[in-house]
Nucleic acid binder design. Structure first.
Lengths: 254, 254
DNA sequence: ACAAAAGTGTTCTATGTACACCCATGT
DNA sequence: ACATGGGTGTACATAGAACACTTTTGT
């Protein structure tokens, strides 16, 4: 792809060199990220940032920022944003959807390519916002009106989210829920994926699905889908917790 | 979303009015479409357009074009492109993926939001390219090297596709194949979805999956998944074809 | 002894797949 | 009568959900 120019005719090279793309109006492009985690209470959380500047000043938003044109791909922009916001590198990002209505941002036409990241809370170093803005984890909660977000006593309804981020987050949750049954997403949320118990994994599935799961059935599915296929390995060790039967430890491989 | 400005403080309005987004460099954004059809021989096809201009002049590409900034959403751009290229309106478009490497297009950084459309061949009026370019349906074929495209004796290997369109098409096929088992995509490819036989639907599934399916099992699945759920209705009529038992007709509801 | 998490077994049903077979039609 | 596609029935393996039950630990 890089060396397209090398195999060009003189005529085409001339065309390329004289081409001026600036005569057409262009949109801004951002890479935004829905970051999911599990908190201490095993509840599903997302990272939100309180906007310190116009527009939607004071509203909460998912992390993101403008792609650096000619310097990086949209994927790389997302990686960069994730790092800047959380200090995390080499976290697999999954492209969720692209939002492109002209009126999403009151300043200009912004096309946002949205990604999803699944991160264990322990790895997350939430950067205290540089510009007096605020970054926090919020539990994903449900009621009759749909979804809202909670951190302790502070609750954020959909209406207090900036731009169309309520729609974006809703889609991300929906997709996560659908994927959890056939993709190994849940492993990415484990504190330590090379040493975990079946029940730690079960709790992740439960809070993503927002309902409790049958222990026996979860184990059977675990053995079939993951152990049998080699995705997971039995470490032959046990987690000796207090007050209960020691639990077998497993390691995520692939 | 439209009336964000109405609820603004004077201060914010001032900010918005004085905001100049043109100080940042922006990428171009296109909406591209992978259009799938079934041909007379019940083979899966895609629509390709021979590029009449630089870059990749003479190469084959999927239809697409630049989004009109401030005038339309990316989705609307895709609809417009579909209409301009095929004369089709009100065809459901599914967003496939967004491609955003800086070197995809030798002219400039282009972010392409790619959509998939499933269209019965009868509805397709392929526009003879306005600028001496060429538009044709190509069968999706497989060999050891992966996928290639055929129209009669003319074959197009992946290498003769413009930009990264080979990757795009490959992803579109993969997604189509995955979706076919749990989404009602196949109905969109029927000549007449309000009057079709089970075997017409079966042939669509077969050519998407590229293998033959068991008749009895396909029927059972059809009755269970579609008839029982009301997605499909028995018309109580029969298709009286020549030389064989008349086949029951069904209607796709929704 | 008991709470609490860890782990096992059985049963029922739905689905996917393989395969053998019958049916209605025009030539 | 027969080729061709249309249509039916049986049988088996596996996945999912429901549920009753045992085991191991620290207190």
């Amino acid at each position: 792809m890089k060396d397209y120019r090398k195999n060009c005719s003189k005529e085409e090279l001339e065309y390329l060199n004289s081409y001026n793309s600036e005569k057409y109006k262009k949109p801004s492009v951002t890479a935004d990220i829905v970051i999911f985690t599990m908190d201490e209470e095993d509840d599903l959380c997302i990272l939100l940032i309180r906007r310190g500047a116009f527009p939607y000043k004071g509203f909460w938003a998912i992390p993101g920022g403008f792609m650096e044109v000619d310097q990086e791909s949209v994927d790389e922009a997302a990686e960069r944003e994730l790092f800047e916001e959380t200090g995390l590198k080499d976290i697999p990002l999954t492209q969720l959807y692209t939002f492109g209505s002209p009126d999403r941002d009151p300043r200009m036409h912004v096309v946002s390519v949205v990604y999803t990241a699944l991160v264990p809370k322990e790895k997350l170093q939430i950067k205290a916002g540089d510009d007096a803005s605020d970054a926090k984890l919020f539990k994903v909660c449900y009621d009759i009106d749909g979804v809202f977000f909670r951190n302790g006593s502070q609750t954020i309804p959909k209406e207090r989210l900036a731009f169309d981020h309520a729609d974006i987050i809703q889609l991300a949750i929906k997709r996560l829920r659908n994927r959890i049954d056939y993709e190994p997403d849940a492993f990415a949320l484990l504190k330590d994926r090379s040493s975990f118990t079946i029940y730690e994994l079960k709790r992740i599935h439960e809070s993503i699905k927002n309902r409790s799961l049958d222990t026996a059935n979860f184990r059977k599915a675990f053995f079939r889908s993951y152990l049998a296929s080699g995705t997971v390995r039995d470490r032959g060790e046990k987690r000796e917790d207090a007050g209960r039967k020691p639990a077998e430890l497993y390691e995520f491989i692939g």
